Computed example of a mutant assay.
Amino acid sequence: MDITPLVKSAIDARGRAYAPYSRFQVGAALETEDGRVFAGCNVENAAFPEGTCAEAGAIAAMVMAGGRQIRRIVVCGGGDTACTPCGGCRQKIREFAVPQTPVTMVSANGSVILVRTLAELLPDSFGPENLA
C-alpha cells in the first residue's frame, strides 16, 4: 500500500502544530478502513503539559467524522530520530486499531525512520475486547 498521501498529510499537520513552549512540532495522519485520511498536530498551552498530542487530534477528527477503525497511522516529528507515540497515544490508537496495525514514523522531510506494529509498540495491550 502506498503511504505517500498519509506521509504528506502528517508533514502538513506538523507544519500547523502549535508548540511555542517545547518547539517540538509533531503531525500525525491516520487512514480508516474505508480509505479516509484524518490528521492532527500537537497543541500546547501555557499550563504545560496540558496540551494534546498529534495522534489524539487525528483520532478525535476521525471519531467526529464517524470513523471507528484505524488501518494505519503515520507520525512525523523533527530530526532524524523516530518520534514514536507516547504511552497515552499508544493506548488511544489501540482503542481504534488492532495489534497488527502499522505505525510509521517519518522525518520532517518524509523519510521513513521506523515502522512498527501497534503490538510492538504496546505489547500485551488492553483493548475493548478485554471488557467483553
Rank of each mutant, 00 (worst) to 15 (best):
T4Q: 14
L6T: 04
L6H: 02
S9M: 04
A13Q: 04
A17T: 04
A17P: 10
A19D: 06
Y21P: 03
R23A: 09
F24W: 03
F24L: 14
A28P: 09
L30P: 03
G35I: 12
R36N: 09
N42F: 00
N45H: 05
A46R: 10
A46C: 07
P49K: 11
E50Y: 15
A54S: 08
A54I: 03
E55D: 08
A56N: 04
G57T: 02
G57F: 01
A58Q: 02
I59T: 05
A61V: 03
M62D: 06
M64S: 15
A65N: 04
R68A: 15
Q69E: 13
I70N: 07
R71I: 08
R72F: 11
C76R: 06
G77D: 06
G78Y: 09
G79E: 14
G79Y: 12
T81N: 09
C83N: 10
G87L: 14
C89I: 09
R90C: 12
R94Q: 15
F96K: 13
Q100V: 14
P102T: 12
P102A: 14
V103M: 00
V106G: 05
A108P: 13
A108V: 06
N109D: 15
G110S: 06
I113R: 10
L114S: 12
L114C: 14
A119T: 05
A119S: 10
L122I: 05
D124Q: 15
S125R: 08
P128K: 14
